[in-house]
Design a protein around this nucleic acid. Structure first.
Length: 878
RNA sequence: GGGUGUGUAGCUCAGGUGGUUAGAGCGCUACGUUGACAUCGUAGAGGUCACAAGUUCGAGUCUUGUCAUACCCACCA
């Protein structure tokens, strides 16, 4: 017997362990059905599960479990990401607590420490995923830095390099002064700040008292200026073009040039050009062949090309202003709201800096990645994200992949003594290539830079399946079926996966890409540690169970919208689980098990036919909606069926049968109950795997585990579905015969019985029992003043189970009115269609498909009309 | 500046291709909880679907505009 209370803590972990140890998550490679596969967006190995993961992985698990029940070969490939910067920062922070810096350890020792740390606490997130119920094939778990994946990374790097798609270049890149590394454009976030605009002037060379006035937010960069630009359309200032001016303090002469970058409307109309420290100025410098003067060290302090060697930019700015003021060159300082770039990880200001870096030729790789989406080989769901994707891909810039970090994939690049580059998969091969190149043995040195984390994530879809080796899994599961991820990661990951996969595999990495929104807090604010409004999914699971959290995520997931976390709602879904638990318990108490020889398509009682038809309807809805990635619709269909139809109505309706004496009816009803409960457990399983499994294991002997139970097919049973009108007709007929049989005078109130019956208790029982309630309201009878006997009550209880209470369809006059109204409506449509279709210009000019659609609707309306008329006829007598 | 969304009940949100009386959960009110229910049931109140014009026999849904709001991209000397 089931416990009295639903207590998820008691069985969730136990059930998960059984799945995992029994190998239930492994694909059934003998299945003759299609393959279905998902690669998990690898969480950061240092991370802990947050609500975003809970959403992302719940959706994936629903799809995985659903497809597994469809009998397909199903693989959910799990793994974690080494997350270069994030992980390095975590470990550095830990070391700092002991007063150690990474430089104290040296590169090798530091990396050792990271691995040690990973071994120690890297499993947290995968443990948490298990707690959520994620049915990943953990036996195949991968890590972006493990041996196989590292080999895949080297292989693809060499391939790209040899195809000329990876190159080294000295470019202006985003430089993180705290981490001491280059970062990609995507890793830079722009933040609003209250800055100041500094106005000052540069003396014109050879013309005492003449100046060119400049405005800048960063005066300290003036030592890197190599020109001042003015638009040639600037009537007021264009006379200065061609002259030279002098950078004060260092008294350096620079030219005044004409360039469109200088907008006459902005600032003073004259712009100082610092090509080595500003992306726009860099372009101007290129156009005019201006020299580059680097004024910053890699830690962001000013260097020897300035008078403030060693000072940071803030201090240098102060000094510069002081000096300019002394020289009488300052005009004014104004408040100026501005946007400043910060590193999204380090949180410090990003400086554009000239450095040697490695780049992937993204514009070339993007071409195929764009084509396959245009051609529909990969589809975004919702489709609108295509636009975002195209927009970004068509304007993509070379991708800076080198990072000056220690933790990550060291680039497979070796330099000869003369700087010649050898790019090979390992040192031995590189040495061989060098031997051949030089004709003698030369010492090689390896490039110290490591790769951007997203480089290895970019090949995740096939590297985890075994590439570059031949493997059954790669053949079977690539391309993967669908990628499920958040919109914030489209550029970082989806786009890169598309490019890398198209380059190497010549096939899309996934056929569909389902994009979901963010999980926000109760008020719709973004969750963040700094705001302190994060909710730990593990605490939620502890409190309400994993099933409740999962169902919440599914029920709230509507395409293209963020989800606001709501504890009340999660509690509501916990109540839903409780409800189901108790329904199952009710079944147990009434010995509702499948009888031998029971067949759902042979039931006779209306109430059983009805619930079976309803169950089929719900199954269809769930199936269709899951196929369409409409998670909330799928979840709500089960919810409505279980609570609204099964618990609220069916269970109430069958009580009299189960408590009565008609053994045949009892037997059929018990079996039907068991059948419907089974159906519920199956279609609910993808959403709530734990409670469904617990009930499955406890309600009868099973030959198959629920996780592998076959998903029901629509055509498996054939019950005669009854529509509302049919129910109403049958209901009222039964009441009439009942009334006649029991000799109840017309106008009498239907029978109620209580030990101490009185007017109040009659009212109560109306509310308690939907059957009685319906009877009462249906006939709108006045008070029954005859005797009420226990027999009469029994009789009504027993017989009335043949009836169907219907919410809403209780008043036949109203029903008639409704039908007539609808009929009038249909007639109106028909008139409209007739009018449209008899209009020659519409029929002749409109596209054939449109006309056909209109005709189809017309005939649909005609069929509807016939149906309504038939229904009206049927209730005409009531 | 460019782009993409969103605006529906007190709150949070559903409302494929226009078509009955616009729905759910929570909250609220009333009544009841005796037989699955750490609760549940029944009933109810609550909406000019942001605003305006248009297309249509018919608009929450389509078109245009306005207002509000969120996010993304670029830029701001």
């Amino acid at each position: 017997m089931l416990e009295k209370n639903y207590n998820p803590k008691e069985f969730e972990e136990k059930i998960y362990q059984d799945w995992e140890t029994s190998g239930d998550f492994k694909p059934d490679m003998r299945s003759d059905k299609d393959a279905f596969s998902i690669v998990i967006p690898p969480p950061n190995v240092t991370g802990i599960l947050h609500m975003g993961h809970a959403l992302d992985d719940t959706l994936q698990d629903i799809l995985i479990r659903y497809n597994r029940m469809l009998g397909k070969k199903v693989l959910w490939q799990p793994g974690t990401d080494h997350a270069g910067i994030a992980t390095q920062m975590v470990v550095e922070r830990n070391l700092a607590k002991e007063g150690i810096s990474k430089h104290d350890l040296g590169r090798e020792k530091f990396i050792e420490t990271v691995w040690k740390w990973k071994a120690q606490s890297g499993g947290t997130i995968t443990k948490q995923l298990r707690r959520l119920g994620a049915s990943c094939d953990w036996s195949r778990e991968r890590f972006t830095m493990d041996e196989g994946l590292s080999r895949a990374v080297r292989k693809i790097f060499v391939s790209l390099y040899k195809d000329g798609l990876i190159y080294k270049a000295k470019k202006l890149v985003n430089w993180d002064t705290k981490l001491g590394t280059a970062v990609s454009d995507l890793e830079v976030v722009q933040k609003e700040a209250n800055g100041k605009m500094y106005y000052y002037k540069y003396p014109i060379e050879g013309e005492t008292g003449e100046y060119v006035h400049i405005a800048t937010t960063r005066p300290e960069t003036m030592f890197g200026d190599t020109a001042v630009a003015i638009s040639k359309d600037n009537e007021k200032l264009k006379h200065l073009i061609g002259k030279n001016c002098i950078i004060p303090i260092i008294n350096k002469v620079i030219p005044i040039i004409a360039d469109e970058h200088a907008d006459p409307e902005k600032g003073t109309g004259a712009v100082k050009i610092t090509p080595a420290h500003d992306f726009n100025d860099f372009e101007v410098g290129k156009r005019h062949n201006l020299p580059l003067v680097n004024i910053l060290n890699k830690d962001g302090t000013l260097n020897e090309n300035t008078p403030f060697n060693g000072l940071n930019t803030q201090e240098a700015r102060k000094k510069t202003i002081e000096k300019l003021t002394e020289l009488g060159l300052m005009d004014k300082i104004e408040d100026h709201p501005m946007v400043i770039p910060y590193g999204d990880r380090s949180g410090v200001v990003i400086e554009p800096l000239m450095t040697d870096q490695w780049f992937v030729d993204a514009p070339t790789l993007a071409k195929e990645a764009i084509r396959v989406v245009e051609d529909g080989e990969m589809e975004f769901v919702p489709k609108s994200y295509e636009k975002t994707y195209f927009e970004w891909m068509r304007n993509i810039q070379p991708w800076c992949i080198s990072r000056q970090l220690w933790w990550g994939h060291q680039m497979p690049i070796w330099y000869g003594p003369d700087g010649h580059i050898f790019c090979e998969e390992d040192e031995e091969t590189a040495q061989k290539a060098a031997d051949e190149f030089y004709g003698k043995r030369e010492e090689l040195t390896r490039e110290t830079d490591v790769l951007d984390t997203w480089f290895s994530s970019g090949i995740w879809a096939f590297s985890t399946l075994g590439w570059p080796d031949k493997s059954e899994y790669l053949d079977t599961f690539y391309p993967t079926s669908v990628l499920v991820t958040g919109f914030d990661i489209i550029f970082f990951w989806v786009a890169r996966m598309m490019m890398m996969s198209m380059y190497k595999m010549k096939q899309v990495p996934f056929r569909k890409c389902y994009i979901h929104g963010l999980v926000r807090d109760e008020q719709g604010r973004k969750m963040s540690k700094s705001k302190g409004n994060t909710v730990d999914p593990m605490e939620t699971i502890e409190k309400y169970g994993a099933d409740a959290l999962r169902f919440f995520m599914a029920a709230m997931e509507t395409q293209g919208r963020d989800i606001n976390l709501s504890e009340a709602r999660i509690a509501g879904y916990r109540n839903f689980a409780t409800k189901l638990w108790n329904a199952a318990r009710f079944g147990q108490m009434n010995e509702c098990v499948m009888q031998n020889g029971y067949s759902a398509d042979k039931v006779e009682l209306a109430v059983n036919k009805w619930i079976i038809a309803k169950a089929q309807e719900a199954t269809q809805e769930v199936t269709q909606n899951l196929n369409d990635f409409r998670f909330s619709d799928a979840a709500n269909a089960v919810y409505q069926f279980v609570w609204g139809s099964f618990c609220d109505w069916y269970i109430e309706m069958i009580k009299p049968i189960l408590y009565g004496e008609n053994e045949k009816d009892k037997s059929e009803t018990r079996s039907t109950f068991a059948w419907v409960l089974d159906r519920i457990l199956v279609i609910l399983h993808p959403f709530m795997p734990f409670i469904t499994t617990e009930l499955w294991n406890n309600t009868a002997q099973r030959s198959v585990k629920l996780i592998h139970a076959p998903w029901p097919k629509d055509e498996s049973i054939d019950v005669e579905a009854m529509n509302d009108i049919d129910w109403a007709v049958e209901l009222i007929s039964n009441i009439r015969s009942l009334r006649a049989e029991m000799n109840i005078p017309a106008g009498a109130k239907p029978i109620v019985y209580l030990k101490d019956a009185n007017a109040e208790s009659i009212k109560h029982i109306e509310q308690f029992n939907p059957i009685i309630c319906t009877l009462a309201r249906l006939e709108k009878l006045s008070a029954y003043d005859g005797d009420i006997t226990p027999d009469m009550v029994q009789s009504v209880f027993r017989e009335s189970t043949m009836l169907m209470p219907l919410k809403g369809v209780v008043d036949f006059a109203a029903e008639k009115e409704r039908l007539n109204k609808e009929l009038a409506n249909v007639n109106k449509f028909l008139e409209g269609y007739k009018k449209k279709l008899s209009n020659p210009s519409f029929v002749e000019r409109a596209p054939a498909a449109v006309v056909a659609e209109e005709r189809r609707r017309q005939s649909e309306a005609e069929a509807n009309k016939a149906k309504l008329e038939a229904a009206l006829e049927r209730i005409a007598n009531f």
